[in-house]
Nucleic acid binder design. Structure first.
Length: 694
DNA sequence: TCCCCTCGAGTTCA
DNA sequence: CTCGAGGGGA
């Protein structure tokens, strides 16, 4: 390539031809490097090809190919990542830690399939890489979307970033289904991680704690150009949605992944028995340190896909796969103090303050002790030397106390019976684990935590109002309650003058607050921080009551025991006596009602889902429910129908518009048929009543 | 009344 | 992510 003409002298036609050739050549080299682990040329030669490609593209931007090796689409950094719903949920996995656990897993599989106790099982074992799971969608063989795992249902759309990974083909080689989701792990090798950190250090930038964080940080860059500059690797290992079957066994599927152009972990192996799996586990444990990347265990999947389908899921975990984790990394350190934190609900949580210690690449200085029983059970004392573990996840735990190293004067920990923040009594309700501060509205710690919750994601989501800011503002009297946040604009100059603040940051904060003056009812209800009312329950309430005004009126009416409003509340599916009581109690407190009205005056609270309207298909209709409804109570169905403007009666007549048939519908169903009245299945009713919309 | 499932709350570190 | 507790179905 030495005799290639300078880019400046290229004609458009020559440039187009060369870009086409480069695309093919670089793709071939990528495959050799990432898939076969057999680089055909030196890095310098490869880099020169990439540079040449970039230079030509820079001069002829119109000629940039869809399959350009530089696939840095959207050179303009996006404002944030869009959400992307996976076509099939991305799985989580159950964990086992020992031979016995694994044997139990196998026994469960056999029991479920109705096999003999000694029946053979075949697995595929795959080293479990510590990276980020992602899902790739290919339509007609072309990569159209890539997303992070997220919560398994919905992830972040990082398509542009993933396109910059050479190990992810833009097109599948050979025949492929019209639509397929392919899952795998994006990771960084130990060597690439060290090199990146060395570079970060030279540039005076923050270092990454471990390869996993480095991979995550590199992929989740708003500017895909940064991702492109990082060395990220990828192994494919799983399937999501597929428009047609692609294999009969998992091993075959992995082979197809390879044929399509993916890198598949070469260590993955078909195992013909439980004993082979055990051997494989030992082999991988021994190999672990020598591998180019971090692994934290091995995933075993039942090889036969038909069996996988039969086994299905138990909750979120598939019954046909298990992660056999290596023992978690542990370290010893001294417990220097036990601090008591006060949460939003008043719960006192003990936290161990540790002499900082490195556990699996992360410096740990604190660990939750959960509650007072936990401290007593493990007999944890200040001054003890303790074993700290970062289990499969991130959150450190204190596993045990090393009794031999206990100082002679170490005294058993006495859990305080008063709130450290406000001095109120802290009591344990019988049957509950948590000891709670009874200070309620007077406790400053609870007040701050409630405010933090109010501003947090999922609630008002006010950028810049984190724990630190809220605590400072609260202390200085700038904000005492949630409504004060929306009056901060009047104090902009004062904020700008604060230590660590400036005009720009103050202006940004005020703008962020102003941007949240309009808020959906559900988020508003969640933000209030009523105990037992989380995101889901808030949504439920919002959908049920429709508007702030209606909710407020109903809750006021529900103060009366036995009132209709009270029974309506109790009849909402998902609202039981405990939640109902919390809501009633919240309203019983005058200060809470005052805060609500104050907020209502400052905000625009948007009505929930269009179901309190006269535009509903069942507004003004006469409805009869019969039989047993399976997804809601009769009372809730009635309340909903009425909220939508329908009338609910008990007997079917010619005037009846719809009869909703539950299970075992009897005489009323017959009468509806006789009279020619329209009937609805429960599902049809749900749709009509708007239950199934977000 | 018991069991299963889902939701809420709390936590660490970069 | 994990634990505890509430809610609902059997």
């Amino acid at each position: 390539m030495s005799e290639r003409p300078p880019v400046e002298t290229l004609t458009a036609a020559a440039a187009a031809a060369e870009l086409a050739a480069l695309a093919v050549e670089i793709a071939r080299l990528d495959a050799a490097y990432y898939q076969d682990d057999a680089p055909e040329v030196t890095d310098a030669v490869y880099d020169a090809l990439r540079a040449r490609n970039s230079a030509i593209e820079a001069r002829f931007p119109d000629l940039v190919r869809a399959d350009s090796p530089n696939r840095r689409l959207g050179a303009v950094p996006a404002a944030g990542f869009a959400k992307r719903r996976h076509l099939q949920p991305m799985l989580s996995l159950g964990n086992v830690f020992s031979d016995a656990d694994f044997a139990e897993f196998c026994a469960r599989v056999r029991r479920f399939l109705g096999l003999a106790e000694d029946a053979g099982l075949e697995f595929v074992g795959e080293p479990k890489i510590d990276g980020l799971s992602i899902s790739l969608t290919y339509e007609n063989g072309t990569l159209t979307h890539g997303a992070t795992r997220g919560d398994g249902i919905e992830g972040e759309d990082v398509t542009a970033n993933l396109r910059t990974l050479a190990a992810i083909p833009a097109r599948l080689a050979g025949a492929a289904p019209a639509l397929i989701e392919i899952r795998g792990e994006v990771f960084m090798t130990k060597a690439d991680f060290l090199a990146l950190n060395a570079e970060q250090e030279r540039a005076g930038r923050k270092l990454f704690a471990n390869p996993r964080n480095a991979a995550a940080g590199s992929l989740r860059q708003l500017d895909a150009n940064i991702t492109a500059g990082r060395k990220l690797s990828f192994f494919a290992y799983a399937m999501g949605e597929a428009s047609e079957p692609v294999a009969e066994t998992h091993a075959d599927y992995l082979a197809r992944l390879g044929a399509w152009g993916f890198a598949v972990n070469p260590l993955s192996r078909r195992l013909k028995s439980e004993a082979e799996a055990r051997d494989f586990q030992a082999e991988m444990a021994a190999l672990r340190a020598a591998l180019a990347y971090d692994i934290d265990g091995v995933v075993y999947k039942i090889d036969d896909l038909a069996w996988q389908r039969r086994l299905g899921f138990a909750g979120r975990d598939p019954r046909w796969a298990i992660a056999w984790k290596f023992p978690a990394e542990r370290a010893e350190t001294r417990l220097e103090a036990i601090r008591i934190q006060v949460g939003r609900t008043g719960a006192l949580t003990p936290v161990a303050v540790l002499q900082p210690v490195n556990v699996g690449g992360v410096l740990v200085s604190r660990a939750s002790l959960h509650n007072e029983d936990e401290i007593a059970r493990k007999d944890i004392r200040v001054g003890d030397t303790v074993v700290v573990e970062r289990a499969g996840d991130v959150i450190p735990q204190i596993v045990a106390v090393i009794m031999a190293k206990r100082p002679r004067d170490a005294a058993a920990f006495v859990f305080p019976d008063r709130c450290p923040a406000c001095g109120s009594h802290a009591v344990r309700v019988a049957g509950e684990v948590a000891r709670r501060c009874t200070g309620g509205l007077i406790c400053p710690a609870q007040a701050v935590e409630r405010l933090v919750h109010f501003c947090a994601r999922g609630a008002f989501d006010i950028e810049g109002m984190g724990e630190k800011t809220v605590a400072e503002f609260y202390e200085d009297g700038l904000i005492r309650g949630p409504a004060d946040i929306f009056r901060l604009a009047a104090h902009e100059a004062e904020i700008a003058a604060r230590e660590g603040w400036g005009e720009v940051s103050a202006r940004k904060l005020i703008a962020a607050i102003a941007a949240r003056r309009r808020i959906p009812l559900a988020r508003f209800l969640f933000a209030l921080g009523i105990r037992r009312v989380g995101e889901t329950t808030a949504k439920l309430l919002a959908r049920h009551y429709g508007s702030f005004g209606h909710w407020r009126a109903e809750m006021t009416a529900a103060q009366v025991v036995g009132s209709e409003a009270r029974s309506t509340l109790g009849n909402i599916l998902g609202i039981g006596p405990a939640i109902a009581e919390e809501l009633v109690d919240f309203f019983a407190e005058e200060r809470n009602r005052a805060v609500l009205d104050d907020l209502a005056g400052l905000l625009e609270i948007e009505d929930a889902a269009p179901m309190g309207g006269g535009d509903s298909a069942i507004a003004g209709k006469l409805i009869v429910f019969t039989g047993t409804l399976t997804t809601m109570t009769r009372a809730e169905a009635k309340t909903r129908a009425e909220a939508l403007g329908a009338k609910v009666t008990d007997s079917v007549s010619r005037r009846t518009d719809y009869v909703v048939l539950g299970l075992d519908a009897g005489s009323k169903a017959r009468r509806a048929a006789e009279l020619g009245v329209a009937t609805l299945s429960e599902a049809e009713w749900r749709t009509l009543a708007g239950f199934d919309q977000e």
